[in-house]
Design a protein around this nucleic acid. Structure first.
Lengths: 149, 149
DNA sequence: CAGTTGTTTTGAATAACTCAAGACAACTTG
DNA sequence: CAAGTTGTCTTGAGTTATTCAAAACAACTG
């Protein structure tokens, strides 16, 4: 089942004008399974299939794929850099303040007034980023349990 | 002129239930003059008036003041943590992608639909954060000049 | 299949930040 | 106004995420 996807991933890489290498396919595959992963998590995910890989290689691949537009890099305050394959739509993220879990949040379509600041102070605005902070369901349960004791 | 402000800053600290110390007053004063400064910049700003200060002391003061609610800590992707005194209003920031300069952006009052995500996926949303990315006037000029050559 | 270009490996270095223990100063109480 | 207590600052070292550089290596081109 991996192989099927791998061919598609290889095509994706080729279309982006990148050489197809094992580490790159592995990283893409890992991020397909576990989005919002940091470099170390990706490294851990690709290690079984690529025993000779190093963390630095993962950093290199992530940087290359991000530059090529295949990955999106997000850097929530307090966390290390996370990567995801979902690109092209400007969706947002919600981060759990308890466990740092990240989840995608769709932007309300055709309804993005925050993307145009009232006064940009002479800046030319290129992109807008929205991050939400809250508590994920799991941590809510945990907190409720604790307060119930 | 500093002394006048210092008394006010001391009061601010006292009102927040914090002990009034020279490093704290100096840090508050520095951030009044140069907002959106990182720890190192603050350190450089307070060093003349407090020759014996260390960077760690600044980190400690910044953390204490942030916890007390006197400072707001912002962590734009790619930059180190920045601090500002403007708190209480949830204004946003625009960061220059060229020089990392930061500027405040007022939120459109009573007009914050982005603060309520369409689907929070079970998360309890506490706060929303909006960051803009663009090019500051200075860097625009620099870029225009370059392309005109 | 050989060559070129670009990628990965290996090793080390950097920067931002944190932790811990003792010295010290600020507010409180008598 | 002096002494005590509490909390802050100083000093020093350590951690983590990330980046840099050079040599070994593999992928696409013709």
């Amino acid at each position: 089942m991996e192989t099927v996807t791998d061919a598609a991933l290889a095509d994706t890489l080729r279309e982006a004008g990148l050489k197809v290498t094992e580490p790159r396919v592995a990283v893409l595959s890992a991020l397909t399974d576990i989005p919002h992963s940091d470099a170390d998590t990706v490294f851990g995910a690709v290690l079984p299939s690529l025993p000779g890989t190093s963390l630095q290689a993962v950093y290199g691949v992530l940087a290359a794929l991000t530059t090529a537009g295949l990955l999106r890099k997000i850097e929530p305050a307090g966390s290390s850099a996370l990567y995801e394959r979902r690109i092209g739509d400007n969706h947002h993220h919600i981060v759990c303040t308890e466990c740092s879990a990240v989840r995608d949040v769709d932007c309300v379509v055709g309804h993005a007034p925050c993307l145009t600041p009232s006064d940009a102070g002479g800046f030319t605005v290129h992109t807008a980023e929205v991050n939400f902070w809250g508590v994920c369901p799991d941590c809510q349960s945990a907190l409720n349990q604790k307060s119930a004791d």
